[in-house]
C-alpha cells in the first residue's frame, strides 16, 4: 500500500494540518515508510488468533452514576482563546 500526493493532501485536510506543496513529497515519503513498516506485520500468521483490543487483558471498570464533577466554569473556560460571558466563542460556524 502506498499513498499518492492527492491522498496525502486529503489526510492533511481531514486532520486540519496545513501543508504546502513543498511538504507533500516529504510527507508522502514519511507516511509510506511507516505504512511499509506496518505491512511487515501482515507477514505474521495470525490464523485462529482473536483480534487484540488492548494490551491489558482485562475488562473495563464501571463507575457508579453519581455527580462528582463539574461547576468548574472558570477553570474550563480559562484556556479558551476567546469567550463571551459563560460561553466559549469561536469563529462563526455556518451550516
Amino acid at each position: 500500500m502506498s499513498l499518492d500526493p492527492a491522498t496525502v493532501r486529503r489526510i492533511a485536510r481531514l486532520s486540519r494540518l496545513r501543508i504546502d506543496d513543498t511538504q507533500v513529497a516529504q510527507m508522502q515519503g514519511d507516511l509510506n515508510g511507516i505504512l511499509s513498516w506496518i505491512e511487515q506485520l501482515n507477514e505474521v500468521n495470525v490464523d485462529g488468533v482473536a483480534p487484540l483490543t488492548g494490551a491489558a487483558m482485562m475488562a473495563m471498570r464501571l463507575r457508579d452514576d453519581v455527580v462528582t464533577d463539574g461547576n468548574l466554569q472558570e477553570a474550563v473556560l480559562s484556556n479558551a482563546p476567546d469567550r463571551e460571558g459563560p460561553f466559549y466563542a469561536v469563529p462563526k460556524v455556518v451550516e
Binding site: 464533577d69 463539574g70 461547576n71 466554569q73 474550563v76 459563560p86 460561553f87
Partner: peptide, 18 residues
C-alpha cells in the same frame, strides 16, 4: 465523566475537564 447530565443549567457549569 462525573459531571451532571441534568437539562437546563447555566452554560458550561456541567462540564468536567474530561
Amino acid at each position: 465523566s462525573g459531571a451532571s447530565a441534568a437539562y437546563g443549567a447555566e452554560p458550561n457549569t456541567q462540564v468536567s475537564f474530561v
